[in-house]
Design a protein around this nucleic acid. Structure first.
Length: 509
RNA sequence: GCCGCGUUGGUCAAGGGGUUAAGACGCCUCCCUUUCACGGAGGAAUCACGGGUUCGAAUCCCGUACGUGGUACCA
């Protein structure tokens, strides 16, 4: 077998947001291409004009860019095998469909939608709730197999609306080797006569994939497992049109499931977690669906968690960078079964990446997240210092809002319930004296603040531990954050004293 | 209904004839820390079920059940 240069493609249809499964398909394509020094192509499958959504194509490219997977060839990146939008290749498809008719592998069908529905109704039984247009029914329909040749001629000449359907052989076993599922086989007689060319002259997916995969010299075709059932149609088409030996190797990827079953892109809201890579706004309804990016995910984490949903390298390693994935990914180790998506684990991945990456890698993103909350950062050095201090406590980038806001402004509310029950005059007294001690400190630093705190506590004969929580609430507002004295050191003497004063009024009330 | 694909703890999963059936997330207990995290120690599955094959099966075969996808002039 000759060594062909690897060429793979991701072929989305621009109908809406890009969901988890889609991104993972891109990812596996991308990894495979990079690993084999191959070419990664994005082809837009916009053959259904009724479902075309404005802006969806650009959105897909935006998502790929955010994930760091840049195509080598695509309608926007160019390439020698264009056009990369199927709508722009319309003229090509008809000739292949006609050739199939000529060779006896396909036929014209003139049935109207009403007639099709009538057939489905007439043949419907308890045993067969959804009759197909196939070997059992096609001879009772209105097509070039049942009509006289002259009649077909005149219908065609008159421009009658028609489609071209594949004529599935009656008794043939169609089998192929899938890179993930290994041997898969179907009985041709059980598969229906799929429409190849629609009445509007556009190809269906079935014709378009094989014609385009051939035209673009695709060597390996990865797609979701939902396509496995129609694989026999594609295989026959390859055989009839281009020769089975030129067919790309198929890999049908396991599906990603939601908590209750299949992952519906519809209402990610109902799960409480995103299903799209990035925010998507439906241009018609203006409805916004949240994305992983906006939810506070790092692209590194998003890619990582998707990669190991259905694949692992056999070791105990779970954290992989894109570069490592390129090196270690292998289709052989991709699972056969679908996987349920677990948002808790997804957050863990993000948490790990937040800890792992230098804060400079995401400080800008956090900066804009804080800005959305009214905190405008001017001092980058200060910001990075804060991020470094609190990043262990953040699973999502959006968590930085709560975890770092008090470094930039006094807390709006204090968790009084955590303090009041144990508040007494001794403590009130302690803090009012402590303010003076703080004011007297010359070297405003962590150890000195703590020193004064402990000294005074000893003088007043109060356990320091009982005073730390109130102090924390005064500075932070709640029961979280790094060491109190460290916080005090960072926010400064004036601010620390001001916050204690203000809190004292509240606690003493 | 029919066809395809699948089935190891709540979830992701390693393991592919002989193992105390890895590990991770989550959960629970404890340690560290008089905050929250981080970190550390520990707890919980006999491998969907039923038959085979075999000295021996989570691992091979066959059924059943269940899940999932398809059954559109959608992809």
């Amino acid at each position: 077998m000759e060594e062909k240069k690897v060429r793979v493609r991701f072929a989305p249809s621009p109908t809406g947001g890009l969901h988890l499964g889609g991104v993972r398909t891109v990812l596996y394509n991308y990894l495979f291409a990079r690993q084999h020094q191959g070419t990664f192509i994005v082809r837009i499958e916009d053959t259904d004009q009724t479902r075309f959504v404005d802006g969806a194509e650009q959105y897909i490219f935006d998502c790929l860019e955010w994930c760091g997977m840049v195509p080598d060839e695509s309608p926007v990146h160019g390439g020698a095998f264009g056009p990369y939008r199927q709508s722009e290749r319309k003229a090509d498809y008809r000739q292949y469909a006609e050739k199939l008719v000529k060779d006896g592998h396909a036929y014209y069908a003139f049935d109207t939608p009403e007639e099709l529905e009538k057939m489905r109704n007439d043949f419907k039984t308890a045993e067969n709730p959804s009759p197909q247009y196939d070997g059992h029914t096609r001879m009772q329909m209105k097509n070039s197999l049942t009509l006289e040749p002259t009649e077909v001629e005149s219908l065609l000449a008159a421009g009658t609306r028609h489609v071209i359907r594949i004529k599935m052989p009656s008794d043939e076993t169609i089998s192929f080797t899938d890179m993930i599922h290994e041997e898969v086989s179907f009985e041709s007689g059980l598969v229906d006569d799929k429409v190849l060319l629609k009445a509007d002259g556009m190809p269906t997916y079935h014709l378009a994939v094989v014609v385009d995969d051939h035209a673009m010299q695709i060597t390996h075709a990865f797609r979701g497992e939902e396509w496995l059932s129609s694989a026999p149609v594609h295989i026959l088409l390859w055989k009839y049109l281009f020769g089975i030996e030129h067919m790309p190797k198929w890999a049908h990827l396991p599906l990603i499931m939601g908590p209750g079953g299949k992952l519906s892109k519809r209402d990610g809201a109902k799960y409480g977690f995103p299903v799209f890579a990035m925010n998507w706004t439906d241009p018609k309804t203006n409805e916004l669906t949240e994305g992983f990016k906006e939810r506070g995910f790092l692209p590194e984490a998003f890619i990582n968690l998707l990669a190991v949903l259905g694949w692992n390298d056999g070791s105990e390693q779970e954290l992989f960078s894109l570069e490592e994935l390129v090196e270690k990914f292998s289709l052989e180790r991709v699972h056969k079964a679908g996987a349920k998506f677990d948002f808790e684990k997804a957050k863990w991945f993000n948490h790990e990446w937040i800890k792992k990456l230098p804060v400079s890698r995401y400080s800008n993103t956090v900066k804009s997240i804080l800005a959305a909350d009214g905190i405008n950062i001017t001092d980058e050095v200060y910001l990075n210092k804060v991020l470094e201090l609190v990043k262990d406590r953040c699973s999502l980038l959006t968590d930085f809002t709560q975890q770092s806001a008090y470094f930039f402004r006094a807390p709006e509310t204090l968790d009084e319930a955590a303090v009041k029950p144990k508040w007494n005059e001794d403590k009130a007294d302690f803090f009012s004296v402590f303010i003076d001690r703080l004011a007297a400190i010359r070297e405003w630093e962590f150890s000195e603040i703590e020193n004064q705190f402990k000294l005074l506590a000893a003088e007043k004969n109060i356990k320091p531990g009982e005073l730390q929580l109130p102090m924390r609430i005064m500075l932070v507002g709640g029961k979280f954050g790094p060491a109190v004295f460290e916080i005090a050191a960072i926010i400064g003497k004036e601010e620390t004293i001001a916050r204690i004063r203000k809190a004292l009024i509240i606690f003493n009330a």
